Amino acid sequence: MGLITPALGLFIWTLVAFLIVLFILKKFAWKPILKMLNERETGIANAISSAEKVKIEMAEMQADNQRLIQEAREERSIMLKEAKETKDKIISEAKEQAKAEANKIMEEARTQIELKKNAALTEVKNEIGTMAVAVAEKVLRKKLEAADAQADYIKMLSEEIKLN
């Protein structure tokens, strides 16, 4: 049984050694250990707080980025719409200008055709008149070769002129 139950003297000396070590630890080591644990706890709390702040700032920055992206998309959409409107306007103006130019060219062509037609008609009329005079002259010469026929014809013309 000697091994299982210690002697009273050994027990007292072990208790005294334990109390001395406990006193020394309490006097010199306990406060620095507690101080270091408190500092570590404060550091961890500060780090967690900083991480939360950074997380909040990141969320704000992400929201700002999303807002900027949305604004950029809206601006791009507006710019594309304006560019399309400008393109359509330019195309319609070009079509109108081309149509006006075509109408102008057509009108000039019609005018030229009308002028040439009138000139041709005038020339044909003059030619017909010249031919008619030439034919009439030949017919009258043939008919009025005799002096009696000439006198009768002059008399008839003078009477027609008086009537008109």
Rank of each mutant, 00 (worst) to 15 (best):
P32E: 00
N46V: 15
V16W: 07
L22S: 08
T5C: 14
K142G: 13
A132C: 04
S92A: 13
A120H: 04
E114S: 09
L3V: 08
T42Q: 14
Q97I: 11
N38W: 15
R40E: 12
E114F: 12
M156N: 08
S77M: 10
I56T: 05
D152Y: 15
N126P: 00
L157K: 09
K155I: 13
L3I: 15
A94I: 07
I161H: 11
N118V: 05
F28D: 00
L15V: 10
D64G: 03
Q66K: 13
Y153A: 06
G2W: 05
E107G: 03
T5G: 03
M131H: 03
K89V: 04
E57N: 06
V133P: 00
A63L: 10
M58L: 15
V21E: 00
A45I: 12
M36L: 11
A72D: 01
F18K: 01
L121G: 00
L68G: 00
G2A: 15
A17T: 08
L144M: 07
A83D: 03
L10N: 07
F11D: 04
K117A: 04
E71Y: 09
I48E: 07
P32V: 00
E123V: 01
I113C: 03
K35S: 13
F11K: 14
T42I: 14
E108T: 02
K162E: 04
L3W: 12
E145P: 01
G129V: 01
A134D: 02
V139M: 06
A151K: 14
I161C: 07
A63C: 03
N38G: 10
L8I: 12
F18R: 01
Q62Y: 11
M106G: 02
K162N: 07
K125W: 04
I91F: 10
A134Y: 02
A98T: 01
A17H: 06
K117W: 09
L80H: 10
E137I: 02
A29D: 01
E41G: 10
N164L: 12
T111I: 14
